[in-house]
């Protein structure tokens, strides 16, 4: 069952992770379209949970060829940079956000834009909750634009990536969203 974010944060870390709504590959393959008419202000998107380990961080460093030692060298992180541990990459969070928006808009919508700040030091063992909430919607050029508040909270409710986003959803019975995406003229 999907729990509101505020209720989720009242649970223990072990309980929080049980409410992971991150879709499987098959669920993404068969996902039904969410239409503009389906969303409403205050609606929460499915919440994705992560519990990064040092190995997850190392895999990300290797994938993007980021050799910054604060992400994999515990001795350097603690004794040189005085961090509490090795740190989760801002670049990883920045790449999870568009994935989260993509999944919400599949199969025919578009994750148009996002902006966010990086706050808080995230470390292995933290439970990270990627979340989003609808703050507004409007139609333009035959497409449905949905404004969101997004972020990534820890199990303690600390917001590490406060931000906003705008995604585009088709209108029920309306035209397809163009691909490549072309925003309507101002």
């Amino acid at each position: 069952m999907s729990l509101p974010l505020d209720d989720l944060l009242k649970l223990s870390p072990e309980e929080i992770i049980q409410h992971n709504e991150k879709p499987s590959g098959d669920q993404l393959r068969n996902k039904a379209q969410t239409y503009y008419e389906d969303v409403y202000e205050g609606m929460e998107l499915p919440k994705y949970m992560y519990k990064p380990t040092p190995t997850h961080l190392f895999r990300w460093s290797a994938a993007i060829e980021n050799f910054h030692r604060i992400h994999y060298d515990l001795d350097f992180g603690i004794n040189h940079d005085k961090n509490p541990s090795i740190l989760v990459h801002g670049s990883w969070k920045q790449s999870v956000a568009p994935q989260f928006l993509k999944d919400f808009t599949l199969p025919g919508g578009w994750p148009w834009k996002a902006r966010f700040e990086h706050r808080a030091m995230l470390v292995p063992g933290d439970i990270l909750i990627m979340w989003g909430k609808v703050t507004g919607k409007y139609e333009k050029g035959g497409m449905g634009f949905v404004d969101l508040e997004i972020g990534m909270k820890t199990q303690d409710g600390i917001e590490s990536m406060p931000g906003t986003a705008t995604v585009v959803l088709p209108l029920r019975g309306g035209k397809p969203i163009p691909y490549p995406f072309v925003p309507p003229a101002e």
């Binding site: 956000a97 834009k113 490549p180």
Partner: peptide, 10 residues
């Protein structure tokens, strides 16, 4: 770091 923005087209 003061923040990031993304715009996605294709």
């Amino acid at each position: 770091n003061a923040g990031n923005e993304l715009e996605i087209y294709k």
